[in-house]
Amino acid sequence: MIVVDNLHKSFGEVKAVRGVSFKAEDGRITGLLGPNGAGKSTTLRVLYTVLKPDQGIATIDGIDVVRQSLDARARIGTLPHGAGLYPHLTARENIAYYANLYGMARDGIDARVQEVIDALDIGDFADRRTKGFSQGQRTKVALARSLVHRPNNVILDEPSNGLDVMATRSLRDLIRRLKELGKCVLFSSHVMQEVAALCDEIVIIAAGQVAMHDSPDGIRERTGCDDLEEAFVKALDRVEPVE
């Protein structure tokens, strides 16, 4: 479970996040939706501890991401925006490297790496060096890498960016399977359809603030729009512009 409470983060003069609060439950898919520059990535970066919030609290399974950042990191699998692989290592070596860094027991690593390779269906190219992989292949390997330690929480920053139709579909299947496993899945996107197709909860963020937080149906109801895209635009209007 991921809880964010009144998060603030500025970069110099720019106020990227201004009081974001939401809760992402276990066994549910929560989508962070918002236009470019709304503060989605900044919020996620605070959650996976590469940024420190100026104000507010964020917890992973009740663990504070600032004060106990190592413990918090151990409980999340992260797919940051444009996650890169090591081109001279094979996909399998890339995943095993992370398994080692996650501190997994050495004798269990090979079996576990094979397990995620099978789960993500990347066996065909698992033993090739990742140099020259397609964006879809890279995303799958990066995802396998972030799931190798069986995290309870999965944070994905715009995971479908640059993926073709087939790759996007298999990514959605995977996200649904994570939900069935009872994981807490939090992902960001600026594509309305994608969020609508997947999420149990939608958090619409604009100008660093939560504009609306509800189920897809709830959002349709509250904005009075049947079309989610219309609803999205309407929800954005409610946010006060940055001074």
């Binding site: 190592l70 151990a74 999340i76 797919l79 996650a83 890169g84 996650y102 501190g103």
Partner: peptide, 17 residues
């Protein structure tokens, strides 16, 4: 190099010092 490749951020998300 890690930054340009985009591998720095996932690396920093790992539970290691």
């Amino acid at each position: 190099g890690e930054r340009e490749r985009g591998s720095l951020e996932p690396l920093l998300c790992l539970p290691v010092k």
